[in-house]
Simulated scan of single mutants.
Amino acid sequence: MQFLRLPDATLHIGDQGPRDGRVVMFANSLGTDLRVWDPLLALLPTDLRIICFDKRGHGLSDATPAPYGMDQLVGDAEAICEALDLRDVTFVGLSIGGLIGQGLAARRPDLLRALVLMDTAAKIGSSEMWQSRIDAVSAGGLPSMAGAIMERWFTQPFRDARPEFALWTNMLTRTTVDGYTGCSAAIAGADLTESTRALTLPVMALAGDQDGSTPPDLVRATAALCGAEFHLVADAGIFPVSNSPRRPRDFLSSFSKGPTHEPL
């Protein structure tokens, strides 16, 4: 078990693969922990150095008092890169993880070689919508919202037929209230349209065709904003890595723009 101690929090980190391997860093979504990537990681080449982490208030990381700001969450990812001496990183961000990746690419282009945006956008939802969710979770806890959230996350066939669906519900409901509402506040205050428009590194965007949280058209618009490749993953919600992990693996493996950006 690895960790990074920051001035105000201790973050849980996963670091696997050869120290000299090409680095792929994964940032997961709101209400999940780094285990969300397990189905995909099992399919990736073993010569990569894989970095995952739990956002503050998620998984095994400390839950600092809400609200959080996007700059704060980007700073956490930046601190991990600095502490582990990571450079030439391919950053893969899902949902809020994609916002963190966009922010890190704008702030520290020297750290990243490429960016993969998965079911995310430069701006997600309205501040009013997020405040309503923050109020509901603060009042009733995450179990009170779990049913509605799961409907947005997963397709009906997945919810009906996959026995591991219960584990995803558990992952969500065991997220701390501070972690969920704090990160919700960070999303509510984030509009990265202009900084993402200015990105010059290679970018690829993926969207599940049945994602109810960040619909494909929203992801496609962000891809167009920064000249990214765009791919639609069939029969998937916000977690293409769980619905059909081989499709995201195939897209990641073929992702190459420019002579210094080899495929995974």
Rank of each mutant, 00 (worst) to 15 (best):
D191F: 01
A198V: 12
A186L: 10
D76G: 07
D178H: 13
K55T: 11
E262K: 09
S184A: 15
T32S: 13
W130F: 13
G179C: 02
R247S: 10
A236P: 05
G227L: 06
D209T: 07
G227N: 00
C183H: 00
G57E: 02
L117N: 09
A190T: 15
T173M: 09
D88K: 08
V24C: 13
A77M: 07
F53K: 02
G237R: 02
D135S: 08
T260Q: 12
A105E: 01
L167I: 06
A148R: 15
T200Q: 03
L34E: 02
L73V: 15
L60N: 09
T260G: 08
M129D: 04
F91Y: 07
A188R: 00
C52H: 09
T46M: 06
S244A: 11
M1T: 12
A148E: 14
D71G: 15
F158E: 01
M150C: 14
Q156G: 05
C81D: 07
F239S: 12
H261S: 13
P202C: 08
G103T: 10
L60Q: 15
A66Q: 08
D85A: 15
T193L: 06
G227P: 02
M1F: 14
C226A: 04
T10D: 02
S61R: 07
F154K: 11
A161R: 07
H58F: 03
V137C: 08
P245W: 05
N28P: 10
A9Q: 10
F158C: 04
N243Q: 05
L232Q: 09
P143W: 04
L40A: 04
D54C: 10
G59I: 12
F255C: 02
M150S: 14
V219F: 00
T46I: 03
P202T: 09
